[in-house]
Design a protein around this nucleic acid. Structure first.
Length: 563
RNA sequence: GCACCUAUAGCUCAGCAGGAUAGAGCAACGGUUUCCUAAACCGUGUGCCGGGGGUUCGACUCCCUCUAGGUGCACCA
């Protein structure tokens, strides 16, 4: 039973307005003492030629008390509904417990596939905090859609193609040290890559050599391909260590090189549709009808460019997955690039271009130069994770030295703290990285939310078996009802998070849940309450823990058993 | 030069398909532990919502303009 819908039906029986429209208008009052749902009458005022206050007043008199609504009051043009708390409480808690881990799932999405491209690091380059930010956001977006019941595919569009790899092969042949590379592949490869650039300034031959090796690569020269493949394997091995720490998996690592042999077809199609225009020796697609600058598809030397690969990749994905949505979680600096790619696809006649979505992520910046220059001018993801775990371990030693599984819990909390910081605010707002902020353990933070779960979990464990048939009507305090309302609004949070591709909606939601549960916990006894109340509060706690687990899971955070 | 984004409390940020007194956390100060983990809870204060116009019964929210900051603008990805 959907209480909002039932209320909308009541209203629609009294006024001349579409049910859909009414549902749309119904809102939740800013203060709980004003009611649980509110219907603004301002729009009706025009057609009914009466003041909103009058309309609200008249409507309120026609609403009778029943199982849904306790009473309806008019207040300043709003018709405020106070729902039947006891019925609502029963309905929500039972719903959460019945659905279990599937609570919040939408039906009807089973056959729709949502592709989410995220992370996409370049091989042989360090994985820094910026990559981690994008990875954590992309992963959470995918989990939101998965929880809503969509089929999803996690795509890691690895950067493994381009002249840079010719240069790297050249550098490897000159200065590559097997042992060092095996020990610390990415840093060692980066080192010889940097050396290549230094040497190239003195010796022009090097640049030529680099381009030559890239040509070899393109022509599938076995020697060059083998070296490139080695770089790729080593890099992926390192990346996967991080993904493991973050509990993130991918369904595909098909990167740029994978699409290189799929470019000729897209180029042929562009020619066939007369979309390619000569401009300064290059081939471009005119996008003036979308008010966009032209899109360069083929360079003046005849070579392709990353736009070409993205076009080929999009078509490939449509054929391979027949996606419902094709989501690119990529830095916001590439907004124009994606507009051009989607615009070009549209001109090619692919209507599904409208199903492609660029979801921009913010830049991670550094305010404190000292910190950013630690190891060059980046901070590695691994450093941040290690630092967080160390800090958590210290706190555990300090607060709970007898804790079991300290190492595991330190990892769950430390990594959770970082993820929380990354998913706390809107994804497009630039982040000035600070250790203090990332490793925040107080107030609205990862550990705060996990602590809320741990408290509930601990109580459930102590209770042992709980009475599944407890009478929930004894839950009649305000603190309890606030929790119930939050449980009920989980679906709204999920929906909004998906519509906006914004994990922070879930972060805020679960933080509110933690606040409400902590307050409830502090104010009322659970195990020490009288039998009937205890049973009901245990069921409430169980439902809350279930939603904690689902929400934190969507964010990519773990739920420690204790902390 | 053109395009897009951002501007809300001392700091970091929510709120913006227009609506009821603009909200959190941090920081500051004060309080809570014979009681299920105090990584918790409670209380106190703060705002020309960047400036100026306009639309509207009503604007932090929509439109125009100015200012400040950021990003992008063809042969890197």
């Amino acid at each position: 039973m959907d209480f909002k819908l039932e209320i909308a039906k009541k209203i629609s029986g009294m006024v001349d307005m579409e049910l859909e429209k009414i549902i749309d208008l119904i809102e939740i009052p800013p203060q709980s003492n004003m009611g649980d749902y509110a219907f603004p009458c301002f729009q009706l005022a025009r057609v009914m030629r009466k003041s909103p206050n009058m309309i609200a007043k008249e409507l309120s008199e026609k609403i009778d008390k029943d199982l849904i609504v306790d009473k309806a009051e008019a207040a300043g043009g709003y018709l405020n509904f106070f729902i039947n708390k006891s019925e609502y409480t029963k309905y929500i808690i039972n719903d959460v417990l019945e659905k279990g881990s599937a609570y919040g799932r939408q039906i009807g999405n089973e056959d729709k596939t949502v592709l989410v491209e995220f992370s996409s690091p370049n091989i042989a380059k360090p994985f820094h905090v910026g990559h981690m930010f994008n990875t954590v956001i992309g992963s959470s977006i995918e989990k939101v859609f998965r929880h809503l019941g969509y089929k999803t595919e996690r795509l890691n569009h690895i950067g493994d193609y381009g002249t840079q790899f010719g240069k790297l092969i050249s550098a490897y042949k000159r200065w590559g040290n097997e042992e060092a590379i095996d020990k610390d592949p990415i840093n060692e490869l980066l080192k010889i890559y940097v050396k290549f650039h230094e040497e190239a300034e003195k010796d022009e031959e090097l640049e030529k050599e680099g381009r030559m090796y890239f040509k070899h690569l393109e022509k599938n020269n076995p020697d060059s391909v083998a070296i490139w493949q080695k770089f790729k394997d080593l890099s992926l091995r390192e990346f996967k260590k991080l993904y493991n720490l973050l509990n993130i998996e991918f369904d595909s690592y098909a990167g740029e090189s994978f699409y290189s042999d799929k470019m000729p077809e897209i180029i042929d199609m562009l020619y066939a549709k007369n979309l390619l225009v000569d401009s300064e020796g290059a081939k471009i697609v005119d996008l003036s009808e979308f008010n966009l600058p032209p899109c360069l598809v083929i360079k003046s030397d005849g070579a392709t460019i990353y736009v070409t690969r993205d076009l080929a990749a999009a078509l490939y994905r449509k054929r391979a997955y027949d996606f419902y949505k094709n989501v690119y979680v990529v830095g916001g600096t590439q907004t124009l690039h994606f507009k051009q790619v989607f615009g070009t696809l549209k001109l090619m006649g692919f209507e599904w271009a409208d199903d492609c979505e660029h979801v921009g992520t913010a830049l991670i910046k550094f305010a404190d130069k000292k910190l950013s220059t630690r190891k060059g001018d980046v901070i590695f993801a691994k450093e941040v994770i290690d630092e967080a775990i160390v800090k958590t371990t210290e706190i555990i030693e300090n607060k709970n030295p007898n804790l079991k599984n300290k190492e595991l819990v330190a990892k769950q909390i430390g990594i959770g703290a970082i993820i929380y910081t990354f998913l706390k605010n809107s994804r497009e707002r630039d982040v000035v990285f600070s250790w203090e902020e990332s490793l925040s353990f107080e107030g609205e933070s990862g550990p705060y939310v996990q602590y809320g779960y741990v408290r509930g979990n601990s109580i459930l464990n102590k209770a042992g078996t709980i009475n599944e048939n407890a009478d929930l009507s004894v839950l009649n305090t305000e603190d309890e009802f606030n929790l119930v309302k939050l449980l009920g609004s989980f679906k709204d949070a999920l929906k909004e998070s998906a519509e906006r591709y914004e994990p922070f909606v879930i972060t805020r939601y679960v933080t509110d849940l933690a606040k409400a549960y902590n307050k409830f916990y502090n104010t009322h006894h659970i195990l020490n309450a009288e039998e009937k109340v205890k049973d009901a509060r245990l069921l409430l706690t169980k439902a809350v823990c279930n939603v904690f687990k689902i929400s934190l899971g969507i964010l990519g955070m773990e739920t420690p058993e204790s902390m």
